[in-house]
Design a protein around this nucleic acid. Structure first.
Lengths: 222, 222
DNA sequence: GTCTATATGCGGATAGAC
DNA sequence: GTCTATCCGCATATAGAC
């Protein structure tokens, strides 16, 4: 009960440090020296345990993305079961997609917050093309399953419009995750009326996804 | 009519090259060697003309952000004038905010597309804290004027919720600008039914901003 | 204003002792 | 598995000739 200070192994220490520094300063701007110093391990440990800086970044993604996407699919499957053939609910499916990252972020505390920042950054084209592959391969099943669900919920919306709108959802979500700390401060600005960033986002994108089609034309707006 | 090849000066060549490379690979991952090679100028030219790599990035921002935000304010002022005291229209104000970056992007062609990618990247925390200041100082007046306009349009929505929703708008916009090339391909996937990415975005965020408040509770959704 | 040459330091990665 | 020492290339930045 008195020596767990050094009990933490080298690998997770490196992962934690890398996660935080990549999130704060970006992949290219973070050196292995920064990481090993922060993790209080030897410089050579990164290459010994992970092989290279790029492989380390992959490992950072691996650790967090899988549980999030598994939870998304679990929630979606649950919805499909309890609907038993009936069309799904727009709010519900959006919630299945959006809730897991917010939940896991809370569950993981500060480390989770940093990771989400890194994810948001990656959405905006950080890192090389190879990194993008390593990142997006984790989302293939998610994209297929959720797109299909939304197509069934909104059969009248042309697919192109639907797919665009899903991109807007992703954009709003990514931005919210990146700035979650500041936005949460905003949510609590009035202590008599604390609101949930997540719930507000869900409300917003549900309205956006359900916006009636076709939209106003330029003429209507002027 | 036969020698304009070398007529272009060094400074704009550097700006163009830097804009493109910062957008594609990020600030930290782009070296002055990459830039001067792409611009076909001497390595020392950057430091001679701009002083440093960071100052060059500032200059890249300077050149493009000002015209966009001036146009935003011009459109908003125009709306206020023609409304002559009446409350403004939600669609109209959102359009005044969102249209200028899309218009300028088109106007500037490939260079504009790259710049918008860079802006989207910066929204997601690229670069250092100093760079952020240099970036966001261009938006102070925009934030004040537009926030005020939205508060008047949606007086029943608590300010915290309103401010959060504006962040969602910014997130969807930034993501759309970053991925504009791919999303435009999506918009034209069906040649019989080409749609406008911008109009679809406007429709989406207008519905989101106008979503009724208070939202469903967690209980309603389950 | 533009060039070459170079100062100076940091980057990822590794060899080899322990 | 962990350490020190080091390779070697590339980074930004500058000095000084033209």
């Amino acid at each position: 009960m008195a020596k767990p200070l050094n009990a933490q192994q080298t690998k997770p220490r490196i992962l934690d440090a890398a996660e935080g520094l990549f999130a704060e300063h970006g992949f290219a701007a973070t050196s292995l020296r920064d990481i090993t110093k922060e993790a209080a391990v030897n410089l050579a440990a990164v290459n010994y345990h992970f092989g290279s800086k790029t492989a380390l970044l992959s490992a950072v993604f691996e650790r967090r993305i899988s549980p999030i996407n598994e939870e998304r699919l679990r929630l979606l499957t649950e919805l499909e079961k309890s609907a038993s053939g009936q069309p799904l609910d727009l709010h519900g499916v959006l919630r299945a997609f959006l809730l897991p990252p917010f939940l896991k972020m809370q569950e993981w505390g500060e480390s989770g917050r940093k990771f989400m920042q890194l994810v948001g950054r990656t959405h905006s084209v950080e890192a090389s093309e190879q990194m993008h592959e390593a990142f997006f391969k984790h989302f293939e099943e998610i994209i297929v399953r959720f797109t299909h669900a939304f197509e069934n919920i909104l059969p009248e919306l042309p697919k192109q419009n639907l797919h665009l709108r899903l991109q807007f959802v992703v954009g709003a979500m990514a931005h919210t995750l990146v700035w979650s700390q500041k936005l949460d401060q905003l949510s609590k600005a009035d202590p008599n009326h604390p609101i949930s960033t997540f719930e507000e986002l869900l409300q917003f994108v549900a309205a956006g996804m359900g916006a009636k089609h076709p939209p106003h034309t330029l003429e209507d707006i002027r």
